[in-house]
């Protein structure tokens, strides 16, 4: 466990809390892609199946529970409680374009051909593309509420910090996991365009609106 890991997990948790608070306080999920949140719930479900079999630390187990809870509560708020405010026609990314390649790849490229390992690999590949429906929705509506951009910033920061964590672990433990690193780099690249807009617009107090 290193500082990048801890900051990364905190940043991830912060992103989920920002999103929950935004939806709960505004009683609306306008501008939020329900599909991305469903994908995140699938990511955590397929990744944390070892929740009851592998025990690493209290921190690890508690964080997995919290992440699962946040993901499912968010999905419930979007498709349940505040479904009337759900912007369905703009959340139009075709999930099968993500799920099929990711499923295929997790059967082809994995560390061992066992159900748990394939599901874990599936969750890693899926997480790297899970944000695409949200980014697609923002590009379609041409703008995003500032609170949504903060959510995306901390989500992107979490993965950038995880990259730093993997570099650190490679330097200190001479260990790395190619599948996690490659998909992590892909995921962080998707945020670069957003990071640029976030720094040049949102941090200057402007609203994030795409040209």
């Amino acid at each position: 466990m290193n500082i990048f890991r801890i900051l990364g997990d905190v940043s991830h948790l912060l992103a989920m809390i920002i999103l929950l608070v935004k939806i709960w306080r505004s009683k609306s999920c306008a501008g939020i892609s329900g599909k991305s949140q469903v994908l995140f719930a699938i990511v955590f479900t397929s990744r944390y199946l070892d929740l009851f079999t592998n025990f690493f630390s209290i921190y690890n187990t508690v964080m997995k529970f919290v992440f699962l809870m946040c993901a499912y509560i968010t999905v419930y708020l979007i498709y349940g409680k505040f479904r009337k405010t759900f912007d369905n026609e703009n959340d139009s990314f075709r999930l099968e374009f993500l799920l099929i390649p990711v499923t295929g790849l997790s059967f082809l490229e994995n560390q061992s051909f066992t159900p748990l390992e394939i599901l874990w690999t599936f969750s890693i590949y899926l997480e790297s593309v899970a944000i695409l429906p949200q980014l697609f929705m923002i590009s379609k509506t041409g703008e995003a509420e500032t609170i949504t951009t903060h959510y995306l910033f901390f989500l992107g920061l979490y993965h950038a910090l995880y990259l730093a964590n993997w570099i650190w672990r490679y330097q200190t433990e001479n260990y790395y996991d190619q599948i996690a690193v490659v998909s992590g780099v892909v995921q962080t690249i998707f945020y670069c365009d957003f990071f640029y807009l976030y720094v040049t617009k949102v941090l200057k107090g402007k609203k994030l609106s795409l040209p």
Binding site: D50, N60, K64, F67, Q111, D177, Q178, A180
Partner: peptide, 10 residues
């Protein structure tokens, strides 16, 4: 070296 991932990350 690429060891078996202990899956200790979130």
């Amino acid at each position: 070296e690429q060891g078996i991932n202990p899956k200790d990350e979130l």
